[in-house]
Computed example of a mutant assay.
Amino acid sequence: MVTIITILAACILFLISLLHVFWAFGGTWGKNVVLPEEQGNRAFSPSVGGTLLVALLLSMAGGILLIEANHISLPEKYLIVQIGAWVCAVVFALRVLGDFNYFGIGKKKRNTKFSKMDTYLYIPLCAFLSVAFIVAINCGG
Rank of each mutant, 00 (worst) to 15 (best):
T6H: 07
T6Q: 08
L8N: 08
L8H: 02
A10G: 05
A10V: 03
L13Q: 09
L13V: 03
L15E: 02
S17G: 15
S17R: 05
L19Q: 02
H20C: 00
H20L: 00
H20P: 00
V21R: 02
V21P: 02
F22W: 13
F22D: 13
A24C: 10
A24K: 01
A24D: 05
A24G: 14
G26M: 08
G27V: 03
T28M: 12
T28L: 12
T28H: 11
W29A: 14
W29D: 09
G30S: 06
N32Q: 13
V33S: 08
V33K: 11
V33E: 05
V34S: 14
L35I: 15
E38M: 12
E38F: 09
E38V: 14
N41G: 01
N41Y: 12
A43L: 12
F44L: 10
S45Q: 13
P46T: 01
P46S: 12
S47R: 11
V48H: 01
G49N: 04
G49D: 00
G50R: 00
T51D: 03
L52Y: 12
V54K: 03
L56E: 00
L56A: 13
L56T: 07
L56C: 05
L56I: 07
L58E: 04
L58K: 01
S59D: 04
M60P: 00
M60C: 13
I64A: 09
L65I: 12
I67T: 14
I67N: 02
I67W: 03
A69T: 12
N70C: 08
H71T: 04
S73V: 13
S73G: 09
S73E: 13
L74K: 05
